[in-house]
């Protein structure tokens, strides 16, 4: 990747030991996605909570 997909600027590659990353010095693009979906965990029902309580 030579061109920043966000702003078209030049992408720089940096490496440190065995790890590397890319960055755009113009817009800060770092090729790391950020999740914006809700956590989406189903709330536990009272029935399940009671069952767990009696089992313990």
């Amino acid at each position: 990747m030579d061109e920043c997909p966000r702003c078209g600027g030049a992408i720089e590659e940096l490496s440190l030991g065995d790890v590397s990353t890319v960055t755009c010095s113009r817009c800060g693009y770092a090729d790391v996605p950020v999740e914006h979906l809700p956590a989406g965990e189903e709330p536990e029902s009272w029935r399940d909570a009671f069952n767990r309580f009696y089992k313990e």
Binding site: L14, S15, L16, D18, V19, S20, T21, V22, T23, A30
Partner: peptide, 11 residues
């Protein structure tokens, strides 16, 4: 800050 943090954390 962001590329440096990413590299140090990964390391």
């Amino acid at each position: 800050a962001i590329p440096m943090m990413k590299l140090i954390i990964e390391q």
